[in-house]
Design a protein around this nucleic acid. Structure first.
Length: 530
RNA sequence: GGCCCCAUCGUCUAGGCAGGUCCAGGACACCGGGUUUUCAACCCGGCAACAGGGGUUCGAAUCCCCUUGGGGCUACCA
């Protein structure tokens, strides 16, 4: 948290929540504590200051007073000519006095590291082997910002040393930072050996480029554009994902700009500014808008996957296999199995694409694989996270529901299939297409009427009795079971997707079942004639 | 533009360092069939790749070079 502007307390909390959800605990760090604290970089300023002073004294670093405008100009010029900006080191290093004067004049004061220019810097990467960088390409980078905080590239070197870090394992996007960090390490801690560096491949999105948080607001813009159309600047860059999303939109309820702003706790102006691409609100605000619009944004953050009904076991397994494999044909693995098999030497060099379909397949397997107790625990957590009406149900009922959903791909599917049990009889939402297909076509309503009477005549609604009745009716009428079961299903659930029908009726109970059938018959009888 | 990384089925990958056992194996997706009260799940079968060009070698997916392509970085962000 060395960036005072960008740092938010919720972001750090989210990282820790995510790790804990995944089942990854840290031995040492924020909240857990340990012998090398404090663990927040913002609380270690005096430590960094000491080392910066040391470099300054040894003439291994120097003060700079350039404004960002001046730096921009230099950069432009460098680009115009041939290559990159490498900061031109002054002949004479400014001293403490100069720094004081500059501060008095209101100029920004930063500190740059004078990177040794005599020889190339060799990074020995665990995954990629030997990589050579010319010192001239790196240049004197800033180690202390004008607000007095260290830059990431400086702070992490000091921390790695002070915290006895043995392995630095991170994404490939940090590979270019490594020579600078190594040079810093040598200047500061010459006598101690470097940690081992391993730069992993980057996981890219199927929409191209790094898997980035920006995809969510981008997708949301497209949806807002579609539903409200209050933008004049949404153009070309419509992601394929956003398009599939908009196709999944529920039949139009009325959506207004005012209500959208209200739901997100923004002003209409702020919504417009977001829509024009001028600003991007925080993730919870984005989520609130998406919820109001009834769409699922592409999952990017760990918490997004948890809210979409993926299991932590799935995520750990799937993520582990992106850029690593155990060397045999195993793919679906439990966490302890992964831990046992893991080996730094088997990390992959090339980038990988994040394939949500395969993730789904993994989730299906893990839902099948985890113990019923674990699954129940995950399911309850999921229900409360998405504020489902099922969240208050007791364990026994939830366990039954889970059992009946064998083969489900996500927790969301289990919820979707069994939600009808927890909705008031008069709050059933009928899916228009399903109603047309099952009730209004051929003799769906007529059959539903017969089913109603036979159910009413039964004294005991066991799954078996219901099955016998429905099968008997199908046989009498010389039709498949679907012809008699589907109208019943839509009457009870409003859709054709639900728990197995015999159990659905049993669990809903006779009174509710009859009531829903009657409501359905009444509601669609007139439509059928017109 | 500059610097760096990478390159096997549509996708994730095994094999590459120790060249022959690879007319390239597995998984997801896809296609065909089966099962089925919905959605799934499940079962059987199928399609599908060594980016291109030069070398080295008796022999190259495997070693070397070039080209092409993809990615990353290029901040007083991390």
């Amino acid at each position: 948290d060395t960036d005072q502007r960008r740092n938010t307390p919720t972001a750090m909390q989210q990282v820790m929540d995510d790790l804990r959800w995944l089942g990854i605990e840290w031995d040492e760090g924020p909240e857990t504590g340990g012998p090398h604290g404090p663990y927040l970089q913002s609380q270690r300023k005096d430590i960094y200051d000491r080392y910066i002073k040391q470099l300054l004294n040894e003439k291994k670093a120097y003060y700079c007073f350039d404004t960002s405008q001046e730096l921009d100009t230099m950069r432009e010029q460098a680009e115009g000519q041939k290559g990159n900006l490498t900061y031109l080191r002054p002949e004479r290093f400014a001293d403490e006095n100069d720094a004081r004067k500059a501060r008095e004049q209101g100029r920004p004061v930063t500190v740059r590291f004078a990177i040794p220019q005599n020889e190339p810097i060799v990074v020995q990467d665990v995954i990629r082997g030997r990589i050579v960088f010319a010192a001239a390409d790196i240049g004197d980078f800033i180690i202390q910002k004008s607000d007095g905080f260290p830059t990431y590239n400086f702070a992490c070197v000091v921390d790695d040393h002070l915290m006895n870090v043995t392995h630095v394992i991170r994404g490939q996007e940090h590979l270019n930072n490594t020579p600078g960090q190594q040079a810093l390490w040598r200047a500061l801690f010459a006598d101690t050996p470097l940690p081992a560096y391993a730069h992993m491949s980057v996981t890219v999105s199927d929409t191209g480029g790094k898997l980035s948080k920006r995809e969510r607001p981008k997708a949301l813009r497209v949806v807002i554009e579609e539903r409200i159309g209050l933008s004049d600047s949404v153009n070309a860059t419509v992601t394929p994902e956003a398009l599939t999303l908009s196709a999944k939109l529920h039949p139009p309820q009325v959506v207004t700009e005012q209500e959208l702003a209200k739901q997100a706790n923004l002003t209409v102006e702020e919504v417009r500014s977001f829509q024009k691409g001028e600003s991007v609100p925080d993730m919870p605000v984005i989520d609130a808008m998406a919820r109001y619009l009834g769409v699922a944004l592409p999952e990017i953050n760990i918490v997004d996957f948890s809210r979409s009904g993926y299991l932590p076991e799935t995520m750990v397994n799937f993520l582990a296999l992106l850029g690593w494999n155990p060397g045999d044909n195993r793919e679906i693995m439990a966490v302890d199995e992964l831990v046992k098999a893991f080996d730094l030497s088997r990390l992959t060099k090339s980038n990988s694409l994040f394939d949500r379909q395969k993730l789904l397949a993994f989730n299906t397997e893990h839902i099948r694989m985890v113990s019923p107790e674990t699954l129940l625990r995950h399911f309850k957590r999921y229900l409360s996270a998405v504020e489902s009406p099922m969240a208050s149900a007791d364990d026994e009922l939830l366990s039954t529901v889970i059992r009946l959903c064998e083969g489900a791909r996500t927790l969301a599917q289990i919820e979707q299939k069994s939600k009808f049990l927890f909705i008031d009889n008069d709050r059933i939402e009928y899916d228009e297409k399903d109603v047309k297909k099952v009730l209004l076509k051929s003799d769906g309503l007529a059959i539903l009427g017969i089913v109603r009477d036979r159910l009413a005549a039964m004294n005991e609604l066991t799954a078996q009795a219901i099955e016998d009745m429905l099968r008997g009716l199908a046989q009498e009428r010389q039709v498949g079971l679907g012809k008699v079961a589907q109208p019943l299903r839509v009457a009870l659930c409003g859709t054709t997707i639900s728990l197995p029908i015999f159990d659905s009726v049993r669990m809903l109970g006779k009174a509710n079942t009859l009531r829903r059938i009657d409501d359905t018959l009444k509601r669609f009888a007139t439509q059928n004639q017109t």
